[in-house]
Design a binder for these strands. Sequence first.
DNA 1: TTATAGATTGCCT
DNA 2: GGCAATCTATAAT
Length: 217
Amino acid sequence: MGRRIQFDLERVRPLSVEFYNRDPRRVARDLLGKVLVRELDGEQMAGRIVEVEAYLGTGDAAAHSAAGLTPRNRVLFGPPGRSYVYFIYGNHYCLNVSCLPDGVAGGVLFRALEPLFGLEAMARNRGLSGELTARVQRLLTTGPGRLCDAMKITRTRDNDLDLTTPESGIWIGNDGARRPRVAVTPRIGITKSADQTLRYIVAGNEFVSGPRAGLGN
DNA sequence: TTATAGATTGCCT
DNA sequence: GGCAATCTATAAT
């Protein structure tokens, strides 16, 4: 018998636009422990943010905004608190939130969630069946492509949405949970600017992807 | 118009 | 632990 998840979505309050109108490094760190909520076709899903990466507008060769404004990355240059969804490796979508004021590029990539609500729906979306064992739960939203798959986040439908209001179908909120212990490491899957430590994880959380080492900070 | 690299994942050995 | 799959934005020709 699996562990029953108890989580009250009513307790979650959306984060303000001003929350995102800051340096992506600060936003990334503060997003840990917050809740990403998805509502689609009357179905609700939610997960606690346990792994993110900051992408800076300037001086960051790994950021999509590095070469200047293009049709694809325009959301990163727009106002804060909006969704930037891109398609990668021919298979996967990745979700970011824009940071800093209109005209200044920057964003945070969502890399992993701890599933809180709607696990059955997420498993279905991921093509997983059977018992929701700890191992299967980790396959739901651990990894940037997986969490988009689980929540059916796509570019055509979900790019450039306002993430500060439930009306968008995707939003981020605070449920009053205590601020988690944070660790910082280099980012994953990039070659440029790979020396910078811009990946933020909840220390010791089992739903973090890849290496979980890193000095607390 | 063509070429290439990419903020990944899952399956293979 | 290695690597193919699969698409497309952007750069190069």
